[in-house]
Design a protein around this nucleic acid. Structure first.
Lengths: 124, 124
DNA sequence: CCGAATCCTTAGCGATACTG
DNA sequence: CAGTATCGCTAAGGATTCGG
């Protein structure tokens, strides 16, 4: 493919699998779940209490997605009643550094961002 | 606030403004737009061609959102017909480093991720 | 060329009820 | 306790059309 050079290579675009992966891992609730599990492994309802705004359905979906991608691990102990514990995997831990970089960025630049928003609203 | 200690401090959760900011800046199309504008300023239709999957509507919305947050700048030159150029701001440039860290993470760990997905699908 | 406006479809989410 | 199942809404997104 691309045997003609009519379209210049320009530069690499973001590969689709990479972007889809980040969509699955950086979505609304995943950041907060990871933030929790980086501190300590947690049970399902512990996570619900720690993230009050999430519904049971969304939390389940988020945990399944993270589990599917090897970011968190789900452990069932056959006690009575059953206990289910979620923990971050070694792979998941490697996500912490880039995510923290992002959170630091947000923290450092929030003032500038809000100034930009005010300007935009006034000029609009 | 927190005059009773019935709820232990545990640790800080992600502040809502920060999370909402990241939602606005890390969404489906913003990453690709930023990726383009980090290379060179671009006209509207240049961006459309560079990101074939984006619709005009979504690209407009993405650019407005980034502009509102001070990440990109929109310049109109009153030629005939009008030319509109989008460029990244200094603030936007500071986003590149943490985003690249994320993309590097995705690149480095994609193999592990796909192994985890296969395992998950087989066990499920 | 750069968009705004409209219509329409679909994915996502909350609410609720039920199971092992 | 830790989910699954179902329903109804609404909000995002695509396709298309129109305008400066």
């Amino acid at each position: 493919m691309r045997e003609t050079s009519s379209t210049p290579p320009e530069h690499v675009e973001i590969a689709r699998p990479h972007r889809e992966l980040l969509d699955q891992v950086l979505d609304k609730w995943s950041l907060q779940v990871l933030n929790e599990l980086c501190e300590r492994p947690s049970r399902f309802n512990e996570l619900r209490r720690a993230i009050p705004a999430v519904t049971q359905k969304s939390l389940t979906a988020t945990l399944r997605r993270l589990e599917r991608n090897g970011i968190v691990e789900r452990t069932v102990t056959s006690t009575r009643p059953v206990a289910v514990e979620y923990d971050i995997t070694p792979l998941g831990k490697t996500l912490r550094e880039p995510i923290d970089a992002l959170l630091d960025w947000a923290h450092e630049n929030m003032a500038d961002i809000e100034r930009a928003r005010s300007r935009f609203n006034e000029e609009g």
